[in-house]
Design a protein around this nucleic acid. Structure first.
Lengths: 148, 148
DNA sequence: TATTGTTATACTCTATAACTATA
DNA sequence: TATAGTTATAGAGTATAACAATA
């Protein structure tokens, strides 16, 4: 049976896992530095990749970016060819944002780099441990994926 | 035996895990917003908590913050009582930074909030899944902790 | 009246180059 | 000569309030 103490332990372990992952394997905020686009812009593309075309304010709400700052971000992404803007026929107040092929390629490159870095670090592990996480990770992903 | 294909799969699973964790459970960059201190300042405190007292430039190197920007960051952290500055007796060029009790309490509060949020999300899982990750997480942490 | 997106503006955070002090 | 930290400064990112257009 799962009790409050279990929830506390699991939450502690998850918190530790997040710290370990970002300090030892892949720090998202450091990964986003040194790219052709500023972090906030990359996050917008990530968001569009996950949810598809979105209204400006929905992106702002999800990424905790203030509405006024979305305008220059979207302007720059458009001028560099990463997203397109189009009107919502059902509500003329709304402007929809959609990522382009260039943005898909950009994300793919970022992801490839990140995974290449991960592989280098994973090579440092012993074979037993690699065998273990090879089994564990899919199980954990199945569970985490159910949340929300 | 662990082969290249396994490394690719593991790296894919790890990447997916990081995305799931930060989008469904706890997004570090969103967690750092809305705090009393800007993200860069909080990261400095986190770094000091992990490594103990550090020279300014070591903090800068690890967090990918440029050296000149460390000065105002440290100034502000000192003025608000989160860190102390003292000289390294062995090398008079070096200025050491050390976190205060107030910073420890601050980190503890941030961590408590994060864990409370995690628990709320974990409650959405079924008991079977909770039993599973209760077993899985410590195993994964043991392995990840060995890297680097 | 509420919401979407924009403008204007001030504030904060950041990056670069040049400087001082010590090694 | 190389390194630690600082100063000066320009640029990039962000938050707030006020506005126009649409619902």
């Amino acid at each position: 049976m799962v009790v409050t103490e279990d929830l506390n332990n699991i939450s502690n372990d998850l918190f530790t896992l997040l710290l370990y992952l970002s300090s030892r394997l892949l720090n998202p905020s450091i990964m986003l530095k040194g790219l052709a686009l500023p972090p906030s812009h990359v996050k917008v593309i990530f968001h569009l990749a996950k949810l598809g075309p979105c209204p400006v304010s929905q992106i702002a709400n999800h990424l905790i970016i203030s509405r006024p700052n979305m305008t220059p971000i979207i302007d720059k992404l458009i001028s560099e060819g990463y997203v397109d803007r189009y009107d919502d026929p059902n509500d003329r107040r709304i402007i929809m944002i959609k990522m382009t092929e260039k943005a898909h390629k950009f994300l793919h490159d970022v992801e490839s780099d990140a995974k290449a870095q991960l592989i280098e670090k994973l090579k440092l592990l012993e074979k037993d441990d690699l065998e273990k996480i090879k089994v564990i990770l899919p199980q954990l992903n199945d569970i985490v994926q159910k949340i929300k």
